[in-house]
């Protein structure tokens, strides 16, 4: 195994993939805790489909760095979705489903009109962490560091707002501001995470680590820390197995997450029975 790891790490593209993957996994897990607790689990899925739609349109118009166009568009969708969730006439689960399937449909239609289902499109759908350009790597690293810093700075307030929005407002916190911060950061992680996990699989690295750690831990700080660890460990095992057996990296990461979730559920059963 050590031999394989050394061989793996000798490739520059794998070194890049691991750097970016660890950071994205950590960020996705941190935001995931808040999203899962706020019952916004499906938002990651919805936003990634919006991201796909925007990317195909941007590519069709010949944009050289479509990610820079996708980030603001997806951020805007995120804010709208979270707003709808708070006070809309359409319930948030239906609105996410509406927006996500529409965006995916537009993306697929644009693809058919332009390039057709080529490898680029497949990479968007299922991820291609091993084919990241240097520009993608820099963007991902900077975004991840911003997310981690903001999460730490706002940790206390995010807890209060997530646990009890009315109490937070009565204490003078601008609860909507923190909801918007979560929305924008989620959009950011979705867009940069799409390169790694793909449109179809990105939401899993947001949801799985939080759900797994909540099986065992009953304390917010422990849930946050353990989600981050679970996410990074799943990524590392995933990319190792993907390399070893030549399987899609994104898919392998999701499967490792699933196995850990089952394992944690069993441990939870044993502890609490």
């Amino acid at each position: 195994m050590i031999q394989t790891v050394i061989e793996m790490m000798s490739h520059v593209f794998i070194q890049r993939a691991i750097l970016v993957g660890v950071l994205i996994s950590l960020c996705a897990a941190l935001l995931g805790v808040n999203l899962v607790l706020k019952r916004y689990s499906m938002i990651g899925d919805g936003l990634s489909h919006v991201g796909f739609g925007v990317l195909t349109i941007a590519t069709a118009f010949g944009a050289t760095s479509p990610l820079y166009i996708a980030i603001p568009c997806v951020a805007l969708s995120a804010i709208i979705l979270l707003k709808i969730g708070n006070n809309g006439k359409i319930k948030s689960d239906s609105s996410i489903a509406l927006i996500s399937s529409s965006a995916l449909a537009i993306g697929v239609a644009v693809t058919s009109l332009t390039t057709g289902m080529n490898t680029d499109v497949c990479n968007f759908m299922f991820g291609s962490i091993l084919a990241m350009s240097q520009g993608d790597v820099i963007l991902s690293v900077i975004s991840s560091i911003i997310i981690i810093i903001l999460f730490i700075v706002y940790y206390r307030k995010l807890f209060v707002v997530t646990f009890d929005e009315n109490f937070a407002k009565a204490s003078g916190l601008k609860a909507n501001r923190y909801t918007n911060i979560i929305a924008v950061l989620t959009a950011l992680i979705i867009v940069i995470g799409m390169r790694m996990m793909g449109v179809m699989l990105i939401s899993s690295i947001i949801i799985f680590p939080a759900i797994s750690s909540m099986r065992i831990f009953k304390n917010f700080k422990k849930v946050v820390v353990s989600s981050g660890i679970i996410s990074i460990v799943s990524f590392l095992i995933g990319i190792y197995l993907a390399y070893l057996y030549n399987i899609s990296t994104g898919a392998m990461i999701v499967i490792v997450n699933l196995v850990l979730f089952i394992l944690f559920s069993i441990i939870d059963k044993i502890i609490h029975d």
Binding site: T162, D164, F167, L173, F220
Partner: peptide
């Protein structure tokens, strides 16, 4: 303020200590 209970709190992973401490936020 002690608001009415919300659905989110029914399975929220937070210790008593964390909840009480969060009262000092303002």
């Amino acid at each position: 303020y002690l608001p009415q209970k919300t659905e989110i709190q029914t399975n929220f992973p937070a210790s008593i200590e964390e909840v009480v401490l969060s009262g000092t936020i303002s």
